[in-house]
Design a binder for these strands. Structure first.
Lengths: 130, 130
DNA sequence: TTATTTGCAAAAACTTTGCTGATAA
DNA sequence: TTATCAGCAAAGTTTTTGCAAATAA
């Protein structure tokens, strides 16, 4: 990677690998659990710090979803998510599904608009009953 | 109000009034500060509990915005928000500004789609520099 | 009268931080 | 060699909960 001033430590490497190995948008704690299987001595603080740094560097994505804990995505490209109202699970929205404002106004309510965050909500395959 | 099984206690009344008196989308703690000026003995727990109950009843809106603390809106009608990346301030997006697809697909990635949350981000009038 | 609600205090849940020894480059 | 990083432990921040007394209906 070598982004910014980031050193590629073993821990950082493993965290990144584990995050990229799943599409479940894990929380810091989820990831801690996985990483710990490979690095039993790693601390939760290291996981938090690395996720934060990697997100700042644009290597990964920090999802500011609804719900208690933040979730992380190994794919830093801009894309939307859908969250299960029942179990909290998060999935990617295929990028061709929706058409967001192609012409987002440059100003809204006096704000200079820089972007937007679109999060769908619904019931995941396991939780939907129909 | 008399929604659900909710009793209209004095505290609940004041919390609701204070929330409706502003358009700043206050956090529970913000509101606690305002309410406390009228009810010095009220506890933060009461504010949290009431906001939760009022949101469940659909009387107010609980915004699951990005950022640390949740914010509340006295207006329960569906509308979008814009958040300042600098100071965290939240404002309403006038409802005619954007055109979200009214024909949201009923299914995305196997999920049954029930709704969506759209949050713009940018710089508020005080924080923008241009 | 009684199911809700309150205040208080404590706990829980999640995240950040200070410090010291370790290490990638 | 040295700026960055790790582990540990402690603290910080936000939210939730248990309980006994108070109260709206």
């Amino acid at each position: 990677l070598q982004v910014n001033k980031l050193r590629m430590t073993h821990q950082r490497q493993v965290i990144l690998e584990e995050l990229r190995a799943v599409t479940s948008h894990p929380t810091a704690d989820n990831l801690f659990g996985k990483v710990r299987q490979r690095l039993p001595k790693i601390s939760l603080a290291t996981v938090y710090r690395n996720l934060e740094l990697l997100a700042e560097s644009g290597v990964i994505l920090k999802l500011e979803t609804s719900g208690r804990q933040k979730r992380f995505d190994g794919n830093p490209r801009r894309h939307d998510h859908i969250r299960c109202l029942q179990c909290g699970r998060v999935a990617d929205v295929p990028m061709d599904v929706i058409g967001m404002p192609d012409e987002t106004p440059p100003d809204i309510a006096g704000f200079k608009v820089l972007g937007y965050r679109l999060e769908f909500e619904g019931l995941c395959p396991d939780c939907r009953d129909d």
